[in-house]
Design a protein around this nucleic acid. Sequence first.
DNA 1: GTCTATATGTGGATAGAC
DNA 2: GTCTATCCACATATAGAC
Lengths: 227, 227
Amino acid sequence: MNLRAIKPPHETRTRILDAAEELFMQHGFEATSMRQLTAQAGANLAAVNYHFGSKDALIEAVFRRRLDAMNAARIAELDRMEKDAGARALSPRQIIGAFVGVSLRMIEDSKSGGRNFIRLLGRTYSDPQKPIRALIGQLYAPAMERFKAAFERALPQMPRDELIWRMHFMFGTLAYTLAATDTVQLIAGCKPEDRYDARLLEARLTAFLHAGLLAPLHDSADVKKAA
Amino acid sequence: MNLRAIKPPHETRTRILDAAEELFMQHGFEATSMRQLTAQAGANLAAVNYHFGSKDALIEAVFRRRLDAMNAARIAELDRMEKDAGARALSPRQIIGAFVGVSLRMIEDSKSGGRNFIRLLGRTYSDPQKPIRALIGQLYAPAMERFKAAFERALPQMPRDELIWRMHFMFGTLAYTLAATDTVQLIAGCKPEDRYDARLLEARLTAFLHAGLLAPLHDSADVKKAA
DNA sequence: GTCTATATGTGGATAGAC
DNA sequence: GTCTATCCACATATAGAC
């Protein structure tokens, strides 16, 4: 009924967020100009400042839109599994499943832009810009604490600092995999039809992470003595 | 004896490369301006274009300066180990050692800027800009092929595509660890004195990667059937 | 809410003296 | 090789009409 029916079927605000998600993922934050962005969104240049206030605020909005829901989903899955398990502790594999499953399922969701966001997120974990990393860290902190607690219950015999490092490694593997899977040359050697098969990737990734998490402890006493 | 004694003790060209390494690592490529960069190097703004031709060429020079030597060192270590082993195949652990050892030893070398470079490298693996990734991929390709061949000899029973993915995961873990170790909030929980202990980090990382590489094969037939 | 026009700053790059 | 001064493109952001 209104004039907006001519434009793509979203609010301007949403179209800008979608365009930003895609362009930030493709070119990075700095290399994406408001002109490109608003052109792709079918919006006016001034619309970004009207709706978000500034480019930095837009970046923040892009992450807030999806990250809260994502982390809530992860935590809800942990909660559900713990309820099912009753008094028994969750297995490490279950926890890993909750950790990677949400991300990987979003990758299959190419229609709604979830894939763009997931890959953007993977890239941003290692973004050099301090305010951006601080934002991500802040949005992630609650889920991180929740997963740390779950792993501590599942692996009571593992030293705390070792667990933290192994979580760090797992997180890195996931982030890098999400960010670089379709671009790194190494992967050119694998079958193309497997590249976007999230189910297969999840099986591969889970096997790798699970083994790494449960790796025999190195003799850190030896290492420290030698140092 | 000459006037340069007043300036830092290097050629202008070298000082520019050092400053670029540090600033690119701290702020990224786009966010680092030639003005900042030349100021830090104690050089004139025009010097970058005189010595390198353009900012992009400078970026390329920063990587070329160290990456060729790094990969040559990795390959040399593989060669040496294979010679020592004679007819026996190398163990996966030895190959991993050659892979991560070179990077991690450079992290301890804070004096000569090696640490800056290593962290810059970790960040750049997931840089969104195509030409930069292409450059890295090109500089890395020979070493990658060499390591792939070594792993194939060490693990003849592992399917090729599974090996490629596991190398990808290992590479990602290393890259992310190098890039984000001192900044990610998660790590704030660990003992500060351990954070830069390369020997300890190497032990932790090697244990994780080794276990991941040798993880039991997931039943990919099941996964494919279900898909 | 959306548009045009513009203010204001900064970027990379270069010309030409020294 | 190094410097100053400058060109020019493009960035973000805003003012003010519609």
